[in-house]
C-alpha cells in the first residue's frame, strides 16, 4: 500500500541522506515524533503512509457524526497529501463544506546519537513547514439553534470546552434527520486517477 508513488503533484523528497553521509563518522541522526498540539478526534494528523481512501473515510465519518469542523494538520512531505485530501472532501460534499488554511513553521529537534564512546548525545534544531486546514460545515444556518442563555457565539479553537457545549446543545435540540447533510451520499470517482 505504498501510496507515495500515486500521490499527484507531490514534490520529491529531498536528498538529505546525501548530506548525512558527510557527518556519518560522528553521529547518527534520530528523528523524534513531532509534537501535537491537540490530541482529540477532531484534529487529524496526516501521514503520507496511510491509505488516502481510509483517511478520507475517517474524515467523512467524523463530519457525519455531527462534528461541525475538523482540522487537518500536515507537515513536510505530507502537505500535498493533506491538500489533496481536503480538496477531495470539499468536492464530494457538494458545497456543504468550506475550508480555511493556515501555514506555520514547526521547530523540530533531532537527536544526534554518538557513534563512539567519547561523545555524548547532542541535539539539532530543524524547521519544517506545516499546514493546518480547517474544514467546516458552511451551511450552519440549516440547523435551528434555539436561543439559550449559555450559548456561545461560534465555536472557538478551545476544543475541550467547545465539545461539551455542542454536546449539550445537541441534547437539547433533537436534530431532524432531513437537516443533517450526509456528505457521503454522492460518491464521485476521484478524477485525479
Amino acid at each position: 500500500m505504498d501510496n507515495n508513488s500515486t500521490e499527484r503533484g507531490a514534490k520529491p523528497r529531498n536528498n538529505r541522506h546525501k548530506q548525512q553521509q558527510n557527518n556519518r563518522a560522528h553521529h547518527r541522526v534520530v528523528r523524534k515524533v513531532p509534537p501535537r498540539v491537540y490530541n482529540d478526534n477532531r484534529n487529524i494528523y496526516i501521514t503520507s503512509k496511510s491509505d488516502i481512501k481510509a483517511q478520507q473515510k475517517r474524515c467523512e465519518d467524523i463530519l457525519n457524526s455531527g462534528v461541525n469542523e475538523i482540522y487537518l494538520h500536515c507537515m513536510g512531505f505530507s502537505i500535498t497529501r493533506g491538500l489533496n485530501l481536503a480538496l477531495r472532501l470539499i468536492k464530494n460534499s457538494e458545497g456543504a463544506l468550506s475550508y480555511a488554511i493556515n501555514t506555520s513553521t514547526l521547530r523540530l529537534v533531532d537527536e544526534l546519537h554518538p557513534l563512539c564512546d567519547e561523545d555524548d548525545i547532542t541535539f539539532r534544531h530543524r524547521n519544517n513547514s506545516a499546514l493546518h486546514i480547517k474544514i467546516y460545515n458552511s451551511n450552519l444556518f440549516n440547523i435551528i439553534v434555539p436561543k439559550l442563555p449559555a450559548q456561545p457565539a461560534l465555536p472557538k479553537p478551545d476544543h475541550s470546552e467547545d465539545r461539551r457545549q455542542t454536546y449539550s446543545a445537541r441534547q437539547q435540540t433533537p436534530r431532524k434527520p432531513q437537516q443533517q447533510k450526509q456528505f457521503k451520499t454522492k460518491k464521485t470517482k476521484p478524477t485525479d486517477k
Binding site: H113, P114, L115, C116, D117, E118, D119, D120, I121
Partner: peptide
C-alpha cells in the same frame, strides 16, 4: 554499538 563505558551512559541519565 557503544560500549558499556560510553560517555552518554556513564552519567546514568540514559
Amino acid at each position: 554499538g557503544l560500549s558499556i563505558g560510553a560517555k552518554t551512559y556513564l552519567s546514568g541519565r540514559r
